[in-house]
Design a binder for these strands. Structure first.
Length: 184
DNA sequence: AGGATGATTGCCT
DNA sequence: GGCAATCATCCTC
């Protein structure tokens, strides 16, 4: 198994995204196995990095294996894992397994499948905001635990974008009840 | 300096 | 299924 340090992330972003399915993400001990992610890279019109570095996307051009957090629609946070320069993996959904009472307290009264199904919901459940932007993923508050077994992985078009809509860079555990949207 | 937009979510019909 | 919320960012003038 490839260790989840810098060398894991210093690879083509699509390879990293695939390999992240099943990896357990914890933020201060709260989290679970990733079931849905998306890849974005420098040559991709849907990516924040497409038009080059700016203050907001600076972390995307920093070292691999760090967090890139940004605010979307003026109200939600989205968490990414930075790979090679200008590329990152958007963390879209995970299976709530560790610290679920704290997740529920943060998310309000929603069912277990709604705790971390979507990038904004996941950040709310795990307490992610701008204070984690740029932090290394191999140190507290983050922890990444290698996947146990590599099950099936489905691919499809990414969600919520208006450019690059055909690019099939969404990766998910097929049939998982914890996805933001179903994917075969 | 001004305005359109967004890697979303939840509430309404 | 449709649409409002809500505001920092970034493009255009």
């Amino acid at each position: 198994m490839v260790p989840l340090g810098r060398e894991f992330f210093d690879r083509p972003v699509v390879d990293v995204a695939r390999d992240l399915i099943g990896v357990t993400l914890l933020v201060d001990g709260v989290g679970g196995p990733l079931v849905e992610v998306e890849a974005y890279d420098r040559a991709d019109p849907a990516s924040h990095s497409f038009r080059g570095p700016t203050p907001r996307n600076a972390a995307m051009f920093g070292p691999p294996g760090h967090a890139y957090v940004y605010r979307i629609y003026g109200m939600h946070w989205c968490l990414n894992f930075v790979c090679q320069p200008g590329s990152a993996v958007l963390i879209r959904a995970l299976e709530p397994l560790h610290g679920t009472p704290l997740m529920a307290a943060r998310r309000g009264s929603v069912g277990p499948r709604q705790l971390c199904a979507g990038p904004g919901r996941l950040c709310q459940a795990l307490g992610v905001d701008l204070t984690q932007n740029g932090l290394p993923l191999d140190q507290a508050p983050f922890a990444l635990l290698p996947a146990g077994e590599s099950g099936d992985i489905a691919t499809g078009p990414r969600i919520g974008i208006t450019k690059g809509v055909e690019t099939p860079w969404r990766f998910a555990r097929p049939g998982s009840p914890f996805l933001s949207k179903p994917l075969r």
